[in-house]
Amino acid sequence: MTGDGAAVVDAVEAVAERIEDERAHLTELDSAIGDADHGGNMARGWAAAAEAARDLDDPDPQTVCKTVGKTLMAEVGGASGPLFGGSLVFASAELDDGIDAESAVAFAETYLEKVEDRGDARVGDQTVVDALTPAVHTFKKSVETDELPPLEALAKAVDAAERGVAFTVPIRAKKGRASYLGWRSVGHQDPGATSALYILEELLAVAADALDAEIPDVDATSPTIPDEAAEDDSAAAEDD
């Protein structure tokens, strides 16, 4: 458990660093369709969150998530506070017994549900939901149906999120500041969805590092069929 907590702190630090690196890019995306504060708000929030996480004494994953979520809510000053941070506090309830494949799926689903509820947004509204939904669905399917190793499932989720971010470009914003632009929001990549992708990419990198493994090269859209093939083989064997 302690090891998991330390890995989660590492992940928060990696996210803070990444968001700081991408700050100008996120602000540029947000200045095209919003109020140009996403990069600055997220960078400030995650820097404070990383500091708060570092200050925790030997925390479990749930405590790290709660602390980070509360810090984001207090520091961000925009919609990303309740969406990224508030949902984290809420979903941390799924981590009572630490992180394993099962609790990670529950955490991801609860997080997405809270973001949808709080933002009153659905897929296709040109929001963070467009990145999170394919990521969470792909992760759940990879773990529960395909029974892939968690790291591979997470890699698939990241690939799915990347496709979700690309999906925000040719659609019209229905929520957030960009929705005030109407059709002029078409052709722009959503900053919040982009941030979610960066966060997931850093989670994957830190998870691979913690497991001392390479990041699996996967494609979210490729079906997983080896189990079916194995079942076919055994079925064929029974027929014989």
Binding site: A74, V76, G77, G78
Partner: peptide
């Protein structure tokens, strides 16, 4: 109102 640092925004606390 405000983001708590003199800017535009809102903070739950």
């Amino acid at each position: 109102g405000g983001d708590g640092q003199g800017g535009i925004g809102t903070v739950p606390d």
